[in-house]
């Protein structure tokens, strides 16, 4: 009886700590995530205009959404290309960054140099470093920093290839592959670091056991490293999908259109806040559509150490 009471006391105590720990984040998430999300959703059903008294709303039902799909010249294309181009890229990014992390976690001379080099895309990714190649608008810089350095690198390679006088088909093929490499590199920096941290969190004793039991390196990777790091694979897959989506761009009639920049442009250049809000709602819905099944399917195969 007394023991039961004490156990409940402990549970209550734990719950109190839990609430205390979660509270700061929850307040922040409420103010900076839920409120903007809900008001943005509300905008998407309205015609929004700026006036001296602030925002003026006029309820228009679903017309913003139909406009996004039917009238807007770019939206549908951006959405479709986003799915088609980003998803294969994400698979490559996850595999590549796991591989890179395993390599960087090994012991060999100049390891620190190698790790630093692999960190470069993270800086380039969010970068101010490439500011001068693109526009001055900070949002576009933020979003397209990495892709520009990527595109720039690709242009350089294409330049060289053109000099060599190869047939244009071959040059075109090679250049698209090169652009692909750069954009994979650009988004694989963060997953690589996450995997690296994951690898370092694996208890060394597990490897000792594997070694004593006579497992080969190959077996150790499949039976120890991979199960232990599987939660990070889900994490990285989710992260890279979101990252690839936010960086998505495509060429429409020869000009480069960045998806998120386009949303920004609709809102602030064309003053169609409602339309922009409905597009961003659809953009988020597209994210959910991909991430929910991916994380559900993947987390069923994940091994949780308990």
């Amino acid at each position: 009886m007394a023991g039961k009471k004490k156990a409940r006391g402990l549970a209550v105590n734990t719950a109190r700590w839990g609430v205390l720990f979660l509270l700061p984040w929850m307040v922040g998430a409420f103010v900076f995530f839920l409120i903007p999300l809900c008001s943005s959703l509300w905008y998407s059903f309205n015609q929004v205009s700026l006036s001296e008294d602030g925002l003026v709303m006029r309820f228009t039902g679903l017309s913003n959404f139909t406009r996004a799909f039917r009238t807007d010249p770019m939206f549908v294309r951006l959405l479709l290309t986003m799915f088609m181009e980003s998803l294969p890229k994400v698979v490559i990014v996850v595999i590549f960054s796991l591989l890179a992390a395993v390599l960087l976690n090994g012991k060999y001379p100049l390891r620190n140099v190698a790790r630093t080099v692999f960190f470069i895309p993270i800086i380039m990714g969010t970068s101010i470093a490439t500011a001068h190649i693109i526009g001055t608008d900070s949002v576009s810089m933020e979003i397209s920093g990495a892709t520009t350095s990527a595109a720039f690198g690709a242009e350089f390679f294409i330049e060289i290839l053109n000099e060599t006088g190869l047939p244009t088909e071959i040059v075109g093929y090679v250049s698209s592959a090169v652009t692909g490499i750069f954009s994979v590199l650009a988004i694989s920096g963060v997953p690589t670091l996450i995997f690296l941290a994951g690898l370092q969190s694996i208890q060394p004793s597990l490897y000792e056991v594997a070694k004593i039991e006579g497992a080969t390196q190959y077996e150790t990777f499949w039976k120890v490293t991979l199960p232990m790091i599987s939660p990070m694979i889900v994490l990285c897959a989710v992260y890279s999908i979101i990252d690839a989506f936010t960086r998505h761009y495509t060429y429409i009639e020869g000009t480069k259109v960045v998806f998120l920049e386009r949303l920004h442009e609709v809102a602030f250049r064309q003053n169609l806040f409602g339309l922009s809000a409905s597009m961003s709602a659809l953009y988020m819905f597209a994210n959910v559509l991909v991430i929910v099944p991916v994380s559900y399917l993947m987390s069923r195969t994940v091994f949780y150490y308990d």
Partner: peptide
């Protein structure tokens, strides 16, 4: 282990997809 843990975890994943780049207006209002 508490009620709402699952729900909160889903909210986190949802908020990951939320880019402030497209909600400048509500952000400024707040």
């Amino acid at each position: 282990d508490f009620a709402g843990n699952e729900f909160l975890s889903k909210i986190i994943v949802l908020s990951l997809m939320f880019t402030t780049a497209v909600t400048s207006v509500p952000n400024y209002v707040i």
